[in-house]
């Protein structure tokens, strides 16, 4: 299966390791992975700020970059949700809308892809870590990503998942919201930190880097430099690597 990796702009800039972990996982699941060099961003920053045209332009770019793949995968529920919104931006252009709809239908959030669409199951990994999991909003409510990452994490030997209170409540990131209404975003992130800390976990794990940066930013400002904040792709890849060493 020929898979195009949509890296996402945040992973590209802030945590490339998540991108490499994603490639590793996809390959371990039997995919041939390509990373189109001309990709940029899904368009959410503009689209959610009211600049609808930027959404349509980036949708066209996405079509150009990814239409030839069997499947597109992103380590983000948020970006995939945006991609699933693309067809609706071309109400007056049924041909483009149709092509985008077909492409959106084979574009998947990473955990959902690994569990439900990949050619092979991931080999079992191994990692000693107590974690709690934050459900990112778009993945959870738009794509139905809830059990998928938990199942993948749960399959890693040694990982212990304890659920935090209000795991499904937004962390306060919300893209530009986190800057425009930073005080509210900070309070929401703070609630998340409190709930995560209450589980005693070594790491807060999630599936969207926006949320992770927000949570980590607040954790560090609160003076917590111990708790790790990980994308589940990093955790799974770490598990695979330790598994191989045995």
């Amino acid at each position: 299966m020929n898979v195009g990796l949509f890296v996402t702009c945040l992973v590209d800039a802030l945590r490339p390791r998540i991108g490499f972990a994603t490639v590793e996982l996809l390959e371990a699941a039997g995919c041939v992975v390509e990373v189109p060099a001309s990709q940029t961003c899904c368009g959410q920053p503009g689209f959610n700020s009211g600049d609808r045209a930027s959404g349509t332009e980036l949708a066209m770019a996405f079509l150009r970059d990814f239409e030839h793949f069997d499947a597109v995968v992103a380590p983000s529920g948020s970006c995939i949700s945006m991609i699933r919104d693309y067809p609706g931006l071309f109400a007056g252009q049924p041909e483009v809308a149709g092509r985008l709809a077909a492409l959106a239908a084979r574009s998947h959030e990473l955990s959902d892809f690994l569990l439900n669409h990949a050619p092979q199951r991931l080999p079992a990994g191994k990692l000693q870590l107590r974690v709690c999991y934050h459900d990112s909003c778009s993945g959870l409510r738009t794509l139905g990503v809830k059990q998928q990452p938990r199942e993948l994490i749960g399959a890693v030997q040694g990982v212990e998942l304890s659920e935090m209170r209000e795991a499904e409540v937004c962390c306060g990131f919300g893209g530009a919201f986190s800057v425009k209404l930073g005080v509210i975003a900070t309070r929401m992130a703070d609630n998340k930190c409190v709930n995560a800390a209450a589980t005693g976990a070594d790491a807060v794990v999630g599936g969207d880097l926006g949320c992770l940066v927000n949570i980590e930013g607040r954790l560090r400002r609160r003076g917590d430099h111990q708790t790790r904040v990980l994308h589940f792709a990093e955790l799974l890849a770490e598990g695979l690597d330790s598994g191989h060493h045995d």
């Binding site: 800039a13 945590r15 490339p16 930013g217 607040r218 400002r221």
Partner: peptide, 14 residues
């Protein structure tokens, strides 16, 4: 004002 920003890990993924 209320949060730190984790710095980029290295050069971009691309």
């Amino acid at each position: 004002e209320g949060r730190d920003m984790p710095a980029p890990q290295g050069r971009t993924f691309r």
